Simulated scan of single mutants.
Amino acid sequence: MGREDTSETMSLKARIVQALKSETEKGASDVELATLRLIECAVRDRDVCARGRGVGEGCPDADVRAVLETMVAQREVSAREHDSAGRIEDAIREREEIEVIEKFLPVPLSGAKLNAAVQDIVEDLGASKLKDVGRCMSALKDKFPGMVESGTAGKAVRDALTRS
């Protein structure tokens, strides 16, 4: 499903539709199918809104990624609420839905990959002082959309700048 097909040419919307079709044919679990349908519905709703604003091809992948991130955040809150209320089965279902949604989100850069990306950005921009952190972070987020976590990336950029 999601992360297995990392074809760079396939849009996020197309990957979602393809996953829904293949999981329906395979006879996936109820939670997985229901979550995929919810994802498709949310993306289709966002497409309709985009077309209403005059964007003929619908919403871009960045908007789809934002929808998915919102869905994950909502389910995390719900899972915590279910846990605190003693509804463990509901919390488990929320976490299962999170797993399905996260299959479509890019894996955040971390470790050696993050450090290499930061080093490339620092070299490309010719950054050498801590005042360049903002510029480096902007370039990093532009080059790797949806894959940069601000806290860890900011620390990596500051580390790279203090070493140079």
Rank of each mutant, 00 (worst) to 15 (best):
T162P: 00
R80F: 05
R163F: 01
V107G: 13
V67C: 15
E25H: 07
E8N: 11
G154R: 13
A85Q: 08
D132S: 13
E40N: 14
D120R: 10
A85T: 06
V148E: 09
V118C: 13
R95T: 07
L38Q: 14
R51C: 06
V17A: 15
F104Q: 04
Q18F: 02
S11K: 09
D63W: 08
D47R: 01
E4S: 07
A112Q: 15
L140A: 09
D83E: 15
A73F: 01
G111E: 06
L38S: 14
E23M: 12
V31L: 12
L130V: 08
M71K: 08
C59W: 05
L109K: 11
V77W: 00
D5H: 04
A79E: 03
A14E: 14
Q119R: 15
M147H: 03
D61N: 13
K143N: 07
E4L: 03
E23T: 09
S110L: 03
T162W: 03
A50Y: 11
G54Y: 01
A116I: 02
L33Q: 05
R158L: 00
A139R: 15
S138R: 15
C136W: 00
G126Y: 02
R46D: 13
A116M: 10
R51G: 09
D120W: 00
K155T: 14
I98Y: 01
T6K: 15
R53T: 10
Q74S: 11
V77H: 07
M10S: 09
R15A: 01
D5T: 02
P145T: 03
G154L: 00
R65A: 12
G52H: 05
D132M: 02
A50Q: 11
A79K: 04
R135C: 00
D63F: 03
E32D: 12
V157K: 14
F144A: 11
R87T: 04
R75D: 02
R15T: 04
E149W: 00
T152N: 06
K141S: 06
E57V: 14
K155S: 09
R80P: 05
D5W: 04
V77G: 03
S138V: 12
S110G: 12
A14M: 06
S150Y: 00
L125A: 07
S164C: 13
R15L: 06
R65Q: 15
Q74W: 01
V43F: 05
K13A: 13
G56Q: 08
L33I: 07
V48N: 10
L130R: 13
S128N: 07
L114S: 04
E69M: 06
A85R: 09
L33R: 10
D5R: 03
L68M: 06
D124I: 03
I16D: 05
A50K: 09
K131S: 12
A34F: 10
V77L: 09
L114R: 13
M71H: 01
G58F: 01
S11F: 03
A160G: 03
E81N: 12
P60L: 05
D61C: 10
R44S: 13
